[in-house]
Amino acid sequence: MIPTLWYLILAATLFVIGAAGVLLRRNVLIVLMSLELMLNSVTINLLAFGHAQQDLRGQIIAIFVIAITAAEVAVALGILVALLRNKHTLEVDELTILKG
């Protein structure tokens, strides 16, 4: 048996990497991937906890999380395509019509 803590450390690491990616990377696609990483770390967490407690709920939530993430990515990509048609860039830094 792999101790739950290892999973948690893995998840936390992924989460931190993902969060850092969202905050630091400039390419929108990579930012989206980093978001995915964050949410996947949550999935790992859920599965690890569910497994540790022999509780199915963890897996169920994980499935929901995956599904919702998929929807989120779908929406994000859709918007990205629309943006690409208006402004031919994928760089976050160039999204500057709205100051802030």
Partner: peptide, 26 residues
């Protein structure tokens, strides 16, 4: 290069539908 937008649409549809499979199997 830029590709036909249909590819994106298909990809997005796939993402949405594929995940539903996950609910159907269990």
């Amino acid at each position: 290069g830029l590709f036909k937008v249909q590819y994106f649409v298909i990809a997005i549809l796939f993402v949405v539908f594929d995940v539903e499979t996950m609910f159907l199997f269990p």
